[in-house]
Computed example of a mutant assay.
Amino acid sequence: MANFQWPWQYEFPPFFTLQPNLETRKKQLAAWCDLVLAYHKHHKLFSLDLKEAQSSPLFNNSKINRKLSTDSICTILEELGNKGNIEWTDKTKTRCLVMWRTPEEWGDLIYRWASSNAMTNTVCTLYELAHGDNTKQEEFVGLEDWLLKRALRALEKQRKAELMSFGNGEGVKFF
């Protein structure tokens, strides 16, 4: 995997302190949101633990000896939540799911793959989709189960697929 390309702001010490000026803060939050999503996408991470976040390279630039405060991280995560990119997994908001693509966007990618590989009117397992030899080159390879199911449910709503349970697993039929 290629090295992650940090944005220029990451080397700028004031970036690690949320700014009081409303316009500057708005731009700064947008930059942080973009960075969080890009970082998670690059590393194929689907969750974030608030307790571990502050020591993560994402929020802690040891090169310039700057790190974001826990309150600032919470503000960024709240912004991402308002945009629909994160979802808290607990009431105390210590852990969240990160979605750099919506379930609908993932569903579209999966359906394009199914259509272009003549998989319509056939059944494949969820394991085959996320870990199969035929999907090695696809962006959705390695997609976590919870997000894969949401993507497939989005396709169900569009009547492009049907989730199925059988014996010891789950599968999907594409239409």
Score class of each variant (00 low, 15 high):
residue 85 N to K: 08
residue 62 S to L: 13
residue 140 F to A: 03
residue 72 S to T: 04
residue 140 F to P: 00
residue 153 R to M: 12
residue 169 G to R: 02
residue 142 G to M: 05
residue 86 I to Q: 04
residue 76 I to M: 01
residue 50 L to C: 01
residue 101 R to G: 00
residue 137 Q to C: 10
residue 133 D to T: 14
residue 144 E to Q: 13
residue 65 N to C: 06
residue 109 L to C: 10
residue 145 D to F: 09
residue 69 S to M: 06
residue 141 V to I: 14
residue 169 G to P: 01
residue 41 K to P: 05
residue 153 R to H: 11
residue 168 N to R: 11
residue 137 Q to A: 15
residue 134 N to M: 14
residue 135 T to K: 04
residue 52 E to V: 00
residue 126 L to Q: 03
residue 162 E to M: 13
residue 167 G to S: 08
residue 127 Y to K: 13
residue 54 Q to L: 09
residue 150 R to D: 12
residue 90 D to I: 03
residue 95 R to A: 12
residue 116 S to I: 08
residue 167 G to Y: 04
residue 146 W to E: 11
residue 118 A to N: 15
residue 101 R to F: 13
residue 113 W to F: 15
residue 155 L to Q: 03
residue 66 R to M: 14
residue 147 L to C: 10
residue 70 T to D: 13
residue 78 E to N: 11
residue 49 D to Q: 08
residue 152 L to W: 03
residue 87 E to K: 12
residue 140 F to E: 03
residue 130 A to I: 04
residue 142 G to H: 07
residue 162 E to F: 06
residue 80 L to G: 01
residue 126 L to T: 08
residue 156 E to A: 07
residue 154 A to N: 05
residue 77 L to D: 01
residue 169 G to Y: 01
residue 158 Q to S: 14
residue 118 A to L: 14
residue 130 A to D: 05
residue 164 M to L: 15
residue 136 K to S: 10
residue 131 H to F: 15
residue 161 A to E: 08
residue 65 N to T: 08
residue 48 L to S: 02
residue 87 E to Y: 06
residue 71 D to P: 00
residue 104 E to K: 12
residue 151 A to K: 04
residue 147 L to M: 13
residue 130 A to C: 05
residue 139 E to N: 13
residue 118 A to I: 10
residue 105 E to H: 07
residue 124 C to S: 12
residue 53 A to G: 00
residue 113 W to N: 05
residue 75 T to L: 09
residue 107 G to Y: 05
residue 123 V to F: 10
residue 112 R to C: 09
residue 155 L to K: 04
residue 114 A to C: 06
residue 62 S to N: 12
residue 125 T to W: 03
residue 103 P to E: 01
residue 124 C to V: 15
residue 120 T to S: 12
residue 136 K to R: 15
residue 154 A to W: 06
residue 154 A to Q: 06
residue 163 L to A: 02
residue 82 N to P: 00
residue 150 R to P: 00
residue 89 T to I: 15
residue 168 N to I: 01
residue 89 T to E: 14
residue 78 E to R: 09
residue 55 S to L: 09
residue 112 R to I: 13
residue 101 R to K: 15
residue 76 I to T: 05
residue 48 L to Y: 01
residue 168 N to G: 12
residue 106 W to T: 05
residue 91 K to I: 09
residue 161 A to L: 07
residue 52 E to K: 10
residue 68 L to H: 08
residue 115 S to I: 11
residue 144 E to Y: 07
residue 110 I to C: 04
residue 129 L to T: 06
residue 142 G to Y: 04
residue 149 K to C: 07
residue 132 G to S: 04
residue 95 R to V: 15
residue 91 K to G: 11
residue 116 S to T: 15
residue 86 I to N: 02
residue 59 F to G: 00
residue 144 E to S: 02
residue 168 N to T: 07
residue 74 C to P: 00
residue 67 K to H: 14
residue 141 V to F: 14
residue 71 D to N: 13
residue 126 L to I: 07
residue 77 L to R: 01
residue 165 S to Q: 10
